[in-house]
């Protein structure tokens, strides 16, 4: 009578797992990534090619892409003075002046825009301040969601269609805070300097891109 348990225990000592065959791909320590800034978790069942693009865009694996080029400081609007005097960021000119600007306890900026040519229903722009290492990652749950990479003058952006996406960012006291989109419908997400922008309520992709470029 064969001792099956003993045979399996012996087998366990003589198998090779895939991680023993090749080094595990170097990932930045994920917690550091989370700390750094902004984990963009774009939720969708993303085909691998798309996932790679998303990953590359957000700098996973040491790839540095997608960061916006600094604009001429003269072109920038300063909202920091409204709040703390610490943060300066560029506002999309095509949206005009926001009717409401808030900064919440976690450091998020919320800008509410009235209807305009490119945003007939108005627009909501969220701005998150990064840490120093840039943002990151990633992906996948709701099969109905789709993520497309689009190009802006200052770098790449992600067009997210579907409700189920969220952003993790480093909030006050270093805690990682999860932020979901406030509105149903698509969102355009891009990074500039050490900030991440999410534009909501503009359902037309080309209009959203034009706004982001403005």
């Amino acid at each position: 009578m064969i001792d099956v348990e003993a045979a399996l225990t012996d087998l366990a000592q003589h198998v090779r797992w895939p991680d023993e065959e090749r080094p595990i791909r170097r990932q930045p320590r994920w917690v550091e990534l989370a700390a750094a800034v902004l984990l963009l978790l774009v939720v969708a069942t993303i085909v691998p090619a798309t996932r790679e693009r998303v990953t590359a865009f957000f700098g996973i694996g040491g790839v540095e892409v997608g960061r916006g080029v600094m604009t001429d400081p003269a072109e920038r609007s300063t909202l920091g003075s409204v709040f703390t005097g610490e943060v300066t960021f560029r506002l999309p000119a095509a949206l005009g002046e926001p009717t409401e600007v808030r900064r919440d306890a976690e450091g998020r900026f919320w800008l509410v825009y009235p209807p305009s040519r490119l945003a007939p229903e108005g627009a909501l722009l969220a701005v998150f301040e990064h840490g120093v290492d840039g943002g990151l990652t990633k992906l996948a749950r709701d099969p109905s969601s789709q993520v497309t990479q689009v190009e802006l003058d200052r770098g790449a952006a992600l067009w997210v269609e579907g409700d189920d996406h969220f952003i993790l960012f480093e909030g006050s006291a270093g805690r990682i805070v999860e932020d979901r989109g406030r509105l149903s419908g698509p969102a355009l997400i891009w990074t500039e300097d050490d900030l991440t922008y999410r534009l909501e309520a503009v359902v037309d992709r080309e209009a959203a891109i034009e706004i982001a470029k403005s």
């Binding site: 895939p18 978790l41 990652t137 992906l139």
Partner: peptide
């Protein structure tokens, strides 16, 4: 975690993706 993922998905590359995603979810 990586080995569990590999056992289920059968692909080393996918197992790495799954594991990283699971770790992010664990944090959340």
């Amino acid at each position: 975690a990586l080995r569990v993922a590999w056992t289920i998905v059968g692909s080393a590359a996918e197992a790495e993706d799954v594991t990283q995603e699971a770790l992010l979810k664990a944090w959340r």
